[in-house]
Design a protein around this nucleic acid. Structure first.
Lengths: 254, 254
DNA sequence: GCCCCCAATATGTCCGGACAACCTGACTAC
DNA sequence: GTAGTCAGGTTGTCCGGACATATTGGGGGC
């Protein structure tokens, strides 16, 4: 059994602003996180005990613990009773978020473009009705979009949404992502259930994505819920696997 | 803006055992979770205010809050300041875990079988060395397995592991999953970075999975780290998309 | 020299209280 | 009738303290 390597204890320049409306634990948490990100806190180094840290900052121990716990939940820190709190070695990227393809691309500096192919209201097919919790045959929005990066088709996106939640303006759909539209309409996204698979391209998909028919495609079906538990969106997306893959970080919940 | 529908406040039969070594907040958390799962706490219903709940159970408010917070983090509950805590409507399945295919299949009652095709030590190729953090050309385990369900090939699994962590017995590899072996060897899995994509089957993959060459396959590459940050495993897996897809739940982190 | 026990140290759990911020609904003033 | 105000209720934040428990390393007994 290899002995756990314990790095040095690091002294940091931490400060909190009591006049700020930002919660103290959050201020501390953000400072620690950026210290880790910028390398001031190197992997393996000990954070120093909570009691002393609290005294140094003029905070109570529960407040310091709350700040540290937030980072433990993010997977940046590991606590060991009797040892201390240390920075994990592996570089942790963001865990999988409920993010839109549009935001992902923009964050990667790819200047995404959207072409809206269909934007209409249709009677809900059985599968869509079941996922959205609306009556079969009732009205639902249907949106088909093509997402491009650098002028190349990247994904073909079909979405169904309940009517009355949102007005789906084609111009605005081309200017930004669907999730951003929903958020700005006051919808608080809460959770999503998704399935990722693969299959050969149908004739329609092949044409839209400029791939040969039967070419391997990456598929995702996602149902998104807001914080009241309503289904607010059903997405059926196909991606060109040469252009896109799903990457994310998983944490073990202890 | 639709008014948030607030269900009835529910009275529950909750108890804590102070003589138990199980933390009180955890006892309460588990009881609430099972009440939600069993339907005693219906979606939308209010949990009752924390102060009174604490008084009723003879606990302090921080302890009750800790129990509730755990369920909020799991996405089962939603708190609203000035309103109360209520059960979310959508049925939340488990969020994506760091689980092995073996466990997934077993949980689904599929009686998985494993055929070990290769179990040897090889010099680490550059890509493997970089992912595992070992010298290029140094010794690493290489394991190739075929995972079957109901006698049908389901996935072709290639794994590389650092030497010295684990003794990889072929018989035990066929009897259980790799993650279970690692856990029983005292390795605490902490996080993993994975990428999911798709591509056409190579000749070797096609033969192993009894698919035609070029058939669409679902691919996953995963690097797993233990709680000290060491990379403990690199997996390159290919799945038959007709037999397997990745399904999981995402939560928005607020 | 080896092993066991124990003290020091760190986090884990729990308490009781206080005040702030926010939401809702009812009341009041116009 | 409408809009603004206020009060009550709930969660959010923070404090200071207490004891429990796991880990580690050193000292004492053998």
């Amino acid at each position: 059994m290899p002995k756990p390597d314990v790095g040095p204890t690091v002294a940091l320049d931490l400060r909190v602003d009591r006049s700020s409306p930002v919660p103290l634990y959050f201020q501390l948490s953000r400072q620690l996180e950026s210290a880790i990100e910028h390398g001031s806190l190197t992997p393996g180094s000990l954070l120093g005990n909570e009691i002393e840290l609290a005294a140094r900052l003029g905070l109570s121990r529960p407040t310091v613990r709350q700040a540290i716990q937030a980072l433990v939940d993010k997977g940046l820190l590991v606590r060991r009773r009797g040892v201390g709190t240390q920075v994990v070695h592996s570089q942790v990227k963001r865990p999988l978020e409920l993010s839109s393809l549009y935001d992902d691309l923009e964050a990667a500096g790819q200047r995404p473009a959207t072409r809206v192919l269909v934007n209409t209201v249709v009677p809900a097919p059985a599968e869509v009705a079941a996922a959205l919790g609306v009556p079969e045959g009732g009205d639902v929005h249907r949106v088909e979009r093509l997402r491009l990066a650098h002028g190349e088709p990247m994904a073909y996106l079909i979405n169904h949404l309940p009517t009355g939640l949102l007005d789906l303006d084609t111009d605005r759909l081309e200017a930004t992502g669907l999730y951003r539209l929903m958020r700005s309409a006051g919808i608080t996204l809460h959770s999503a259930r998704q399935a990722i698979g693969a299959r050969g391209a149908t004739a329609t998909e092949a044409e839209r994505l400029t791939e040969p028919e039967g070419a391997p495609l990456l598929t995702m079906r996602r149902t998104t819920y807001d914080d009241t538990g309503r289904a607010v969106e059903l997405g059926d997306h196909t991606y060109r696997p040469s252009r896109y893959s799903f990457e994310f970080q998983l944490l073990v919940r202890s």
